[in-house]
Design a protein around this nucleic acid. Sequence first.
RNA 1: GGCGGGGUGGCCAAGUGGUAAGGCAGGGGACUGCAAAUCCCCGAUCACGGGUUCGAUUCCCGUCCCCGCCUCCA
Length: 478
Amino acid sequence: MALMLYDTLRRQEVAFVPAEPGRVGMYVCGPTVQGDAHVGHGRAAVVFDVLRRHLAASGLAVRFVQNVTDIDDKIILRARREGVDHAVISTRYARAFERTMELLGVLPPDVRPLATGHLLEMQALITTLIAADKAYAVEGDVFFRVRAFPTYGALSNRRIDELVEGADVVDRDRKEDPLDFALWKSAKPDEPSWPSPWGPGRPGWHIECSAMAATHLGAGFDIHGGGLDLVFPHHENEIAQHEAAHGTTFARHWVHNGMVQMGDAKMSKSVGNVVGLAEAVEAVGRGPLRLWYLSAHHRSPLTFDDERLDDARAVFGRFVTFVRAARRAAAGAARDGVAGATHRDAFTAAMDDDLNAPVAVSVLHQLITDADGPLKAAAKGDQAAQGAVAELADTLVTLGDDVLGLGIAEVLDRASALEQRIAPLVDGELELRAQARAAKDFAAADAIRDRLAAAGVVVEDTAAGAVWYAAEALRPAT
RNA sequence: GGCGGGGUGGCCAAGUGGUAAGGCAGGGGACUGCAAAUCCCCGAUCACGGGUUCGAUUCCCGUCCCCGCCUCCA
């Protein structure tokens, strides 16, 4: 493969070469489970899911790790408000997250580590940092000494001295330098806490990713992903923590996805303009929603609005319609093994070009256009054409489902199950309609068609007679 | 203020130093009893002003506008 990937740290596209041939280790920052995921979270999920699928389709064995941050200020606040244990909150939303990811067609990670399950690893890292004089403990808190890490700011392209003004003012009186950030936070009264060499407390946010990524993938793993809004300070701190402690490279490629916009502002909980991800999947459907996510380059901003979602619905509909028609025309013929090759190559080339999904999707459109001739011939019984059509349809499903995760086959299967149940009924109606048409009684024929349409059955007349499908099963409630 | 990313046909969106993929919407046509589906045809000179060049949408400078990060955040 010849994947070129934009690397945030180097600020350019670079050839992606795994540290170990044939294998890829990937870490993507997961949710802080303090509430329901929104459409913005879905973008990161889909972008990295597609990257992962493309790597796998390229023949690489991918190990995908995504953490769950199950302890933080907001979780504690929510638990307090509801009068329950923090684990009630984190478990509730972690489960909801998993369910929603499944609905979105996002493959589950190979490892989904919990922050609270890696406290010893974090403490070991902190201990190392203190021993190296890169961190210091103050009354139960531990802070990272930012100025002791000379390359701090490399990822986000910032100079330390320019950061001072906006530095976090929390705990300013206890820090040596306002830039320093917490590795371990001492417990305040009534807060959940865990024992540590520095007293009871809980980990800072950034330390978990440094510890868990290294634990589950090893230092110097291939790809670290996350939203562009995590570049500073989260990812910057992850690098600092690991590299200051071990002196080795933490992650080899940094990939970041752009933000989802609502109107002219970023979709964000703090802005208060979020749309729930679960609701969006239900309303739009997995395939259309993913096509919308993939309608722009992964680093560009992407606007959530009805018009663009309608576009995505239309595209998904076109894909499904084509596959359905192709499967019928192919009549079970074996795929010929050649017809889709150029499209497959073009698709792969697009994905290899920094995950150029808009172009990859355009290849799928081209495939459908190119399939028109064979499709018409196949419908007339041309066997060679049937083999080509079978090949093209399977190619579209493979690329669209295996790599982009659209779920085309799934939608057709669901429709098919319904169609089989109602077939005797519909076929009877269509028999009557055929008789009416033969007798030129079009009013009667159209009445039957309208009746079926009202029941969610769409009838189309072709050279080979009427065909039909259950439109209801195609609706978004995936 | 600092850093970064953008302004391409009605909408979305690729892309390239040699006159701009694809999709959606719209119009016309083929097909159809009518539809549906599908196919074919039709539309942009790339924010603005300079510059470099034989030639720039693509490179450089400037201007205007938009967005993100700089605090929790996918």
